[in-house]
Simulated assay, not measured.
Amino acid sequence: MTDVDVVLPSLNEEAALPWVLGRMPNGYRAIVVDNGSTDATARVAAAHGAVVVSEPQRGFGAACLAGLAAAEAPVVAFCDADGSLDPQELPHVCEPIAAGRVDLLLGRRRTTTWHAWPPHARLGNAVLAASLRRRLHLRLTDLGPMRAARRDSLLTLGLRDRRFGFPLEMVIRAAQQGWRIEETDVSYLPRTGKSKVTGTIRGTLRTIHDMRRVLAGAGDAT
Rank of each mutant, 00 (worst) to 15 (best):
Y188E: 02
R160K: 11
R147Y: 07
P18L: 03
V44I: 13
M170P: 00
A98T: 08
A81F: 08
T113S: 14
K196P: 05
G178S: 12
A40E: 14
H137D: 14
A221F: 06
G199N: 08
P9R: 00
R202I: 13
A175K: 02
L168H: 03
V6M: 02
N35S: 09
E13K: 10
R134D: 15
T192R: 09
G158A: 09
T112L: 14
L138Q: 07
D103V: 04
A73V: 06
R109W: 04
E55Y: 07
T184L: 04
A63Q: 03
A149I: 01
V171Q: 00
T222I: 13
A77N: 06
F164D: 09
E95K: 11
D152H: 15
L168P: 06
R147K: 15
P96R: 09
T184Q: 06
V127E: 12
L154C: 05
D152T: 15
S195D: 12
A221S: 09
V51W: 02
H115P: 11
E95T: 14
A69H: 12
G199D: 01
T111S: 15
R139F: 13
D103C: 01
G178E: 12
L65N: 04
P25T: 05
H137N: 13
Q176W: 12
L157N: 03
P18W: 04
S195N: 13
D152E: 15
H48W: 14
R29A: 08
G83H: 00
W117M: 09
L90D: 02
H115I: 03
L157F: 05
V102L: 08
M1N: 14
A175W: 01
T204D: 08
I201Q: 13
V6G: 00
D39P: 05
P25V: 03
A62W: 03
T111A: 09
R109G: 04
D210C: 14
D34K: 02
Y188F: 14
P87M: 03
T41P: 00
P25D: 05
H92I: 14
A69L: 12
R150N: 07
G49D: 07
A16C: 12
E55N: 06
D3T: 08
A148L: 00
G100M: 02
G107R: 01
R23V: 02
R101I: 08
M24F: 11
S131T: 10
M1V: 11
A130L: 15
P119H: 11
R162Q: 15
V197A: 15
L106T: 10
D80M: 13
C94D: 01
G49V: 09
